[in-house]
């Protein structure tokens, strides 16, 4: 059985997709998959993923409906609006939601592990996370990654 290890480090709407898409697809292909969530990647493990947002700030490649100067992007409410618009786009294009993809990962036995150090660093409450998550350190991930055919840092 092939193995893939993913290190998920980002917590924005656009960056939460790649680990979940690759993990769910690899699992569907029969791969053994482990996702190590660290720093902002811990957002992938929250029970409620509705708060995950995208920011047009410092993200010049993000397509905008109308050209928007940076100082306008920094106004209050712009991030929420951009996130809402992207979520509508995602839905209208038949792209799965983050929670739908995560559900499929879990069904297909993708193993999610959380970095204990960053959980401590940000003082997260473990109850905010989904069940079935192991809280581990780097050495545990390396044990899996050392045997993996594919290893990605996202």
């Amino acid at each position: 059985m092939k193995k893939m290890g993913i290190i998920a480090t980002k917590g924005t709407l656009d960056m939460a997709y790649p680990p979940l898409i690759l993990a769910s697809t690899a699992a569907a292909l029969g791969w053994d998959v482990q996702v190590f969530c660290t720093f902002y990647g811990l957002e992938l493990l929250r029970k409620n993923m509705d708060g995950i947002r995208v920011s047009p700030l410092a993200n010049p490649a993000m397509p905008m409906p109308v050209p928007m100067p940076v100082f306008v992007q920094a106004l209050p409410g712009m991030e929420a609006m951009a996130s809402m618009m992207m979520k509508q786009k995602i839905k209208s294009k038949g792209v799965a939601s983050l929670s739908e993809l995560r559900e499929m990962c879990i069904e297909a036995d993708v193993k999610f592990v959380a970095c204990q150090m960053t959980v401590d660093l940000f003082e997260f409450d473990k109850n905010e996370f989904i069940g079935g998550v192991d809280f581990v350190g780097a050495a545990s991930f390396m044990e899996f990654a050392g045997e993996a055919d594919v290893c990605l840092f996202i």
Partner: peptide, 11 residues
């Protein structure tokens, strides 16, 4: 449906 849903549903 868009990638990767067709594959996941097929599986």
């Amino acid at each position: 449906m868009n990638c990767p849903l067709p594959i996941l549903k097929t599986k």
